[in-house]
Simulated scan of single mutants.
Amino acid sequence: MSESGTIRLALVDDHKMLLGALSEWIRSAADDIELVCAVTSYPELLSHPAFPVDVALMDVDLKDGMPLAVRLAQMKPTGVKVVLMSSYSEPPRVREALASGALGYVPKSEDASMIVKAIRAASRGESYISAELDLAISSSDIGGSPKLSAQERRVMALYGGGEPVKTVAYELGISEETAKSYLKRIREKYRVAGFDVGTKVALRKRAIEDGILLQTD
């Protein structure tokens, strides 16, 4: 975020018509968001003079042959927060995006004002998906797995992926105590559902089985 408190935003979408329309809408949507980059490909984003930005609003389906997890992994060390948008909102796809490092997921069918909420949340290091999408993900859990919130899934993905509590807290912009309380709540939910995730290894295994963490993470 700039010294003035403005969120510097990059927009990446390979549909030029949508890119143009969305660019115009974002420029007039909020005074605290400055669109500094609008490009049609991921390489263009990386080479843009305004990069790194605060938040990148990126289409999931850029059709460049690069796995989403790879793009998100490359973005992580730059400090850029990523919000994804897509025409699809299947729970497994959303879970993969959040587990891979995205802080927000916005279906293109949703009201455009949701984009602003997701951008602002990401700039603070917070996860954001709509209540409807969160409910769809939770209700689709299989095998009797408990219903976790978007933030709980993010904590579980980071911690199960090998990060210490201190790093989980830093990544999500929360205190260590808050991160620990999330882990305690996650473990309690799984305990009630009949699953023991008391150890980090058990929690990681469960996160993979429930699609919260990718096998390769």
Rank of each mutant, 00 (worst) to 15 (best):
L62V: 10
A97P: 02
H15C: 05
A122H: 12
R95Q: 13
L84M: 12
L9T: 04
V94I: 13
V60I: 13
K76R: 14
L46E: 10
L84W: 03
V55Y: 09
D32S: 14
V53K: 03
G65I: 08
D64Y: 09
E132F: 01
P107F: 05
S109V: 12
S130Y: 03
A56D: 02
Y128T: 03
G20I: 01
Y105F: 14
A99P: 02
E132V: 11
P92V: 09
T40V: 00
E110R: 10
M114C: 09
A10V: 09
T6H: 12
I137F: 04
K63L: 15
E132A: 12
P67R: 12
S130A: 12
Y128F: 15
D134E: 15
A102E: 02
S100C: 14
E24H: 06
L72C: 12
A29E: 09
V116R: 10
S138Y: 00
M66A: 11
G101N: 00
I115F: 08
M114P: 00
S127D: 07
P77Y: 09
L57K: 02
S100A: 15
A73N: 07
L103T: 03
S23H: 01
I129N: 04
A122V: 05
M85T: 11
Y42P: 02
S138T: 10
G125M: 10
S139C: 10
H48F: 05
L18E: 04
S86C: 14
G125Q: 07
D64N: 08
L35W: 06
P77C: 12
A30E: 14
S23L: 00
K117S: 15
Y88R: 15
E24C: 00
R8A: 12
M66V: 15
S130C: 03
A131P: 00
V55K: 02
A99Q: 04
L72I: 13
M66Y: 00
Y105C: 06
Y88C: 13
L18K: 00
P92Y: 13
L35F: 06
R93E: 13
D134R: 10
T6W: 01
I119P: 05
S123V: 03
K76V: 04
A50N: 11
P52L: 07
W25V: 01
R8H: 12
S109M: 09
I26K: 05
I7S: 05
P67L: 13
P77Q: 11
S87Q: 13
E44H: 05
D13P: 05
L133Y: 05
A38K: 03
T40E: 12
E24D: 14
L18R: 03
S89D: 15
L18A: 11
R120N: 04
Y88N: 15
V83P: 07
A102C: 06
E90R: 13
L22C: 03
S123Q: 08
H15G: 04
D111W: 03
D14A: 05
I129R: 01
S139V: 11
D61L: 13
A102I: 06
W25Y: 11
R93G: 13
D64V: 09
L72K: 06
T40F: 01
I137Y: 02
A69N: 04
V70L: 14
D32P: 07
G5P: 09
G104T: 02
D14P: 09
L135M: 10
D31V: 07
G20D: 07
I26G: 02
I7A: 04
A73C: 05
V80Q: 04
H15F: 08
E126Y: 07
I115N: 06
A73H: 09
A30D: 15
